[in-house]
Simulated scan of single mutants.
Amino acid sequence: MSVVDLREVPDFTANPYPYYAKLRAEGPVHTIRTDGLDHRIWLIVGYEEARAALADQRFGKNWRLSDSWAVSSNPINANMLEMDGPEHARLRKLVSREFTPRRIEALRPRVEQITGELLDAMVPAGSADLVDALAFPLPMTVICELIGVPDLDRDRFRQLSNAIVAPVSRETESEAVHAMGAYLDELIEDKRCAPGEDLMSALIQARDEAGDRLSSEELVGMAFLLLVAGHETTVNLISNGVRALLDHPEQLALLRVEPELIAGAVEEMLRYDGPIENATFRFTREAVRVGSHIIPAGEPVLVALASADRDPGRYPDPDTFDIRREAQGHLAFGHGMHYCLGAPLARMEGRIAVRALLDRCPGLVRDPDGGQPDWLPGMLIRGVRTLPVRW
């Protein structure tokens, strides 16, 4: 199998979908090289194969089990997204009670209030960068209040988060990882000294039936995952979703006429141009057959969620954005034991934000003076840094 160098594909970051379609037509799995990584990566692009891989425990998330994958250890890596089996289950159990449907629904009035306040500040100006004005501050405020860090330095945190999930180089990523670890360690120590009725205080005090409790590194890892995953996904769900509506005015008009379609519209936004392009790395615990190829043990694997959700074998006419489509079954939030814990919260925030935005800004269009999109680099997060709009 030849190795495809994605660095040689023009405009891949701006629009990877035609190239994913070409890869899918040639087979469900390929080997690639991409920026910042010296070795080959296996890329799974077909829907059925992607769904199966996400639930297959032969594809582990613990990079420490791969002899070929050298990653400097940092407390932020002690999170459940990078763990398997009992370790993952133990950590997930500690926070899952905060993300039940009942708990999420109880947050609705506060999410609506925050959205309204952000729009109150934004609408009189007649134009805005939608990322700065709504898509970022809404989920960031919600997750900070849930965790118990409302005074978080959000500008600093946003810089570090972006440098980790959408790095421009390995050096800047490494620097951000170490800075983030130190930043969160200090935040947790402050919370330890002044606990409250919030999730982070509960995690600091939590013990299981055997008296076990989270280590200092595990607390940093949990804070990192909750804060980063708790806002990055929703930021780009909102901004990508609004971009899709603005690029398809007939669908925008339909949603204005039938606002009750918002739930299905958000699912189609997630399928059509979701916030996560590829799931985080997995590593083969043993040799695994995918299609006609065998991936050897210890190899790094990416599951291309963006490609899987445009597979015509699963979704007819997949490159068409259709808010009436039955988009259920998409993989935008993953699948299997690592399915996104915060998916119900992200869905609720997306529905509330988009519907309120359309209600308050009936003339919403792209700002013609906004320039070309500034795409987030890398293959993890799919989105733009800014979204200039006016109304």
Rank of each mutant, 00 (worst) to 15 (best):
S307P: 05
A52Q: 12
G371W: 06
L376A: 13
E267A: 13
R271T: 12
D151L: 05
L43P: 02
V177K: 11
I44R: 10
R170F: 04
V111N: 10
S292Q: 15
K93A: 14
V149P: 03
D38A: 15
P28G: 13
G46D: 14
R102E: 15
Y339K: 02
E26R: 12
V3W: 01
F333E: 05
H338E: 00
P167H: 06
P316D: 00
D38E: 14
C144A: 15
W391M: 13
L184S: 09
L214F: 05
R207G: 07
V142E: 07
G230P: 01
D190P: 00
P388E: 11
A128Y: 09
P373I: 01
D273R: 07
T34A: 14
F157C: 07
G211W: 01
L225A: 10
N77V: 02
S127A: 13
D374F: 00
G370E: 07
E268Y: 12
G230W: 00
I164F: 05
N240L: 08
V220G: 02
M379Q: 13
S215P: 06
N162P: 01
G85H: 11
E173I: 00
A194Q: 12
S161L: 10
G181Y: 06
T100G: 00
L134E: 09
A25P: 05
E8L: 11
L37M: 14
N236C: 03
V257C: 11
L341F: 04
A253G: 12
A89F: 01
G342K: 03
L203N: 13
A163N: 12
I262R: 08
A21N: 06
I147D: 10
D67N: 10
D153M: 06
A356V: 02
R103Q: 14
E349P: 02
D374G: 04
D185T: 14
I44V: 15
L146H: 05
R90L: 05
I294K: 07
T320L: 12
R7P: 01
A297V: 09
R154K: 15
I76E: 01
L23T: 11
A202N: 13
D84P: 05
A253T: 15
D129H: 03
I147A: 11
M337H: 02
L302W: 04
A263I: 13
H335W: 06
T115K: 09
A133P: 04
A297G: 07
D369T: 09
E209D: 14
D11P: 09
D322S: 09
V45E: 09
I104N: 02
R347P: 00
S66N: 04
L358Q: 03
D129Y: 00
L331K: 10
I143R: 08
E326K: 14
Q113E: 15
V220E: 01
P137H: 08
K61M: 13
R325D: 06
L219R: 01
E260A: 15
L184K: 11
L107G: 00
E105P: 05
D155H: 12
S239C: 05
H88I: 03
D84T: 04
I238M: 09
A78Y: 04
Y183K: 04
E112W: 01
V290D: 10
V384D: 10
C193G: 11
L225F: 01
R366S: 01
R7C: 09
L119P: 07
V266P: 13
V165Y: 06
N162L: 15
P318N: 03
G230K: 02
I276T: 14
R256L: 12
T141I: 03
R64S: 08
Y47N: 12
V9A: 04
A343K: 09
M140T: 14
W42I: 07
A306F: 02
D132Y: 03
A166V: 11
